[in-house]
Simulated assay, not measured.
Amino acid sequence: MSGHHDVHSGVHSEHGASAGEHSGRARNPVVKVLDLAWLEFEKPDLDRAEAFAHAFGFATALRTADGLQLRGTDPGSPCVLIRRAARSRFVGPAFRAADAADLRRLAEATGARPVPLPEALGGLTVDLADPSRLRVRVVAGTHELASLPAQQPHLFNFGHDLVRANATQRPPRAPARVQRLGHVVFQTTRYRETLDWYLRNLGLIVSDFLYYPGQRERGPVMSFIRCDRGAVPADHHTLALTLGPSNRYVHSAYQVADLDALAAGGEYLREQGYRRSWGIGRHIQGSQIFDYWRDPDGFMVEHFSDGDMFDCTLEPGWAPMSASGLAQWGPPATKDFLGLEPGVESLRELRAIVGALRRDNEFDLRRLRGLLKVANS
């Protein structure tokens, strides 16, 4: 078909931005964080939250009357902290600084001050607010949890390369054991301002930009952002930001051993009565094999495996955004994943669109047209 753009090719450019476009990194960031440490939520029913967490593949690191800490099998911090509250709410992320000196440098640059974290976590935090008014913690010196027994990946016979003989493959239909927290995705009405805030203050760098078809000259509307560890490869994205009519959590992602763990774990979740949002498939940006679920409080969470790892030398890729461009293979993106499923969430987003168009922010009428075009692509 003449003029058709193949969303499955040419999506990462080694040449980076064109003249005048965003470079995808700050020249002199205040600090360079190493990774996500954890995510914090509030939920009214900790028993219900813990039951889903165990079915999803977390282990409980700590349970009190008013709090829950969930962890993966990797050593380090808990992945998720949940505090009992009257309503469900995403509180914010915590990023790990290299050391206390970086924490002090960040505090001096922002006018914040390091304060002690609860004894169960240890260490210090500098609490900031990004331009979307999301609380962002940067932590150092926290307690390190020892590793737990990990789910072992399977041996595969690839083509004629025989590594398994006289043995069957029988992945158990059991929870996929979460290894670690991989990334979190936010939507913001002030995308460019928020993006620059993370690059400037936390030293993150962009792996891929997406723009609305026909609107590249207006700049990107989504970015997949990784930690800058120099020559040490980091996850393709630790944070992803997307422009939209409201400031909100979109989803978070947790690594598991392999496709069998992800698929068999998904069958276990389905049998327990939990709701898949979208999957199983393989993404384009990041290349992860993915499977998305909704927890009982409506938060979207992802199992992933086999994601891209980039060092600091790769420049950002640029690609048009489309629903069909979200995956290389797998079922079409669902209405639930795209936020189009009729219900409370889609009604809330519709109201947010009306409000956003009345306010001074980056989500204007032309951006709305671009978003609707993406949703129907």
Score class of each variant (00 low, 15 high):
Leu162Phe: 13
Leu162Cys: 11
Leu162Thr: 08
Leu162Gln: 14
Leu162Tyr: 12
Val163Phe: 09
Val163Ala: 06
Val163Met: 06
Arg164Asp: 15
Arg164Met: 12
Arg164Val: 15
Arg164Thr: 13
Arg164Gln: 15
Arg164Ile: 12
Ala165Gly: 12
Ala165Asn: 09
Ala165Asp: 10
Asn166Arg: 15
Asn166Met: 06
Asn166Glu: 08
Asn166Gly: 04
Asn166Val: 09
Asn166Thr: 06
Ala167Asn: 04
Ala167Asp: 05
Ala167Met: 10
Ala167Val: 10
Gln169Met: 11
Arg170Pro: 02
Arg170Lys: 13
Arg170Ala: 13
Arg170Glu: 12
Arg170Asn: 09
Arg170Gln: 14
Pro171Leu: 05
Pro171Lys: 14
Pro171Ser: 05
Pro171Trp: 00
Pro172Gln: 08
Pro172Lys: 13
Arg173Ser: 03
Arg173Trp: 02
Arg173Asp: 13
Arg173Ala: 08
Arg173Val: 09
Ala174Asp: 07
Pro175Thr: 08
Pro175Glu: 07
Pro175Trp: 12
Pro175Arg: 03
Ala176Leu: 03
Ala176Val: 03
Ala176His: 01
Ala176Tyr: 05
Arg177Lys: 14
Arg177Ser: 14
Arg177Ile: 08
Arg177Cys: 04
Val178Asn: 02
Gln179Cys: 12
Gln179Leu: 15
Gln179Tyr: 11
Gln179Asp: 15
Gln179Glu: 12
Arg180Asp: 04
Arg180His: 11
Leu181Met: 11
Leu181Asp: 04
Gly182Val: 11
Gly182Ile: 10
Gly182Asn: 15
His183Ala: 11
His183Ser: 08
Val184Tyr: 05
Val184Thr: 14
Val185Ser: 10
Val185Arg: 01
Val185His: 04
Phe186Val: 08
Phe186Glu: 05
Gln187Gly: 08
Gln187Glu: 12
Thr188Arg: 08
Thr188Glu: 09
Thr188Ser: 14
Thr189Leu: 09
Arg190Lys: 13
Arg190Ala: 06
Arg190Pro: 03
Tyr191Cys: 11
Tyr191Ile: 12
Tyr191Arg: 00
Tyr191Asp: 01
Tyr191Ser: 00
Arg192Lys: 07
Arg192Tyr: 00
Glu193Arg: 13
Glu193Val: 15
Glu193Ile: 12
Thr194Gly: 11
Thr194Cys: 13
Leu195Gly: 02
Leu195Val: 06
Leu195Tyr: 02
Leu195Asn: 00
Asp196Arg: 04
Asp196His: 06
Trp197His: 01
Trp197Lys: 07
Trp197Ala: 15
Trp197Gln: 09
Trp197Ser: 06
Tyr198Glu: 01
Tyr198Leu: 08
Leu199Phe: 02
Leu199Cys: 12
Leu199Gly: 02
Arg200Met: 07
Arg200Leu: 12
Asn201Trp: 04
Asn201Asp: 02
Asn201Arg: 09
Leu202Ala: 06
Leu202Cys: 14
Gly203Tyr: 00
Gly203Asn: 00
Leu204Met: 15
Leu204Trp: 01
Ile205Gly: 03
Ile205Asn: 00
Ile205Thr: 14
Ile205His: 03
Ile205Val: 13
Val206Cys: 14
Val206Ala: 14
Val206Thr: 14
Ser207Tyr: 04
Ser207His: 06
Asp208Val: 02
Asp208Tyr: 04
Asp208Pro: 10
Phe209Ile: 12
Phe209Asn: 01
